[in-house]
């Protein structure tokens, strides 16, 4: 898994690619922790090149969203495809989060 964090003015863009599994989830949790501590921006998580996500990854995402929510900050998810899109759907994440077709759309929202 690769993680990239960019400041895009009012939002922080976190791009994750590869495999988000029980082994790599801890790494993402650390990155999310830094974003949580790093100021009051809203967050966009790009999943454009994410090909695999397990419940360990969903757990880290849900925890991050809860902590942002508690701090009156928001998180949106962008560019989901294939299995990742299906997993967000069956996990009920579509009714829980703002989900955008593309990163551009998410940044413009």
């Amino acid at each position: 898994m690769e993680i990239k964090v960019e400041n895009r003015g009012e939002v922080v863009l976190i791009s994750i690619s590869g495999r988000l599994d029980a082994v790599t989830a801890a790494e993402l949790e650390t990155t999310f922790g830094e974003v949580l501590d790093g100021g009051g921006q809203n967050a966009i998580v790009s999943m454009e090149d994410l090909e695999y996500i397990s419940s360990a990854g969903l757990r880290v995402i849900l925890l991050f969203a809860k902590k942002l929510h508690a701090a009156q900050r928001q998180v949106g998810f962008a560019a989901l495809s294939g299995n990742v899109k299906e997993i967000f759907d069956i996990s009920g994440f579509y009714s829980l989060f703002k989900i955008y077709d593309t990163v551009e759309e998410a940044l413009a929202a």
């Binding site: 397990s54 419940s55 757990r59 969203a65 929510h69 508690a70 996990s91 989060f97």
Partner: peptide, 21 residues
Amino acid sequence: DIGLDIMARPIGGLGIVMIRK
């Protein structure tokens, strides 16, 4: 229960949902 809102959602238990699906 995947119908709960963000703060009420438990963070675990989705593994079995994916296995079944």
